[in-house]
């Protein structure tokens, strides 16, 4: 019974993670400028990865295994934040303007 509940929860979490990954990917492909694309990529991917790690965390056999999963998540989140910062910084320095709605453009 407990096993069944746990498996069900894992599947739900995995599907949730997949949804966020898909949303992030669509954002990456469809958003108009580098800043909003970064936003889509990092936010959605971090939540997606978080849900995926959570899904595996409740299946972990030992505390060590769980800790490793959390470490993977923490590293991926900080790395992606750092890289997003680098990208945005570079784009900003190169003078890439943020996208605006056509009617708001000066």
């Amino acid at each position: 019974m407990i096993d069944l509940l746990r498996d069900g929860l894992t599947i739900v979490l995995l599907l949730g993670g997949a949804f966020f990954f898909a949303a992030g990917t669509i954002g990456l492909l469809r958003f108009p400028d580098v800043y909003s694309r970064l936003h889509a990529l990092t936010k959605a991917d971090n939540v997606g990865l978080g849900l995926t790690v959570l899904a595996f965390l409740i299946q972990a056999d030992s505390v060590m295994q769980g800790l490793k999963l959390v470490l993977v998540w923490a590293l991926a989140v900080t790395a992606s934040a750092t890289i997003a910062n680098l990208f945005a910084n570079l784009a900003h320095r190169q003078g890439v303007r943020e996208w605006r709605k056509p009617e708001d453009r000066p």
């Binding site: 069944l4 498996d7 599947i11 299946q59 972990a60």
Partner: peptide, 8 residues
């Protein structure tokens, strides 16, 4: 990761 549904 050892439960039944997951392994199937």
């Amino acid at each position: 990761m050892s439960t039944l549904a997951m392994s199937t």
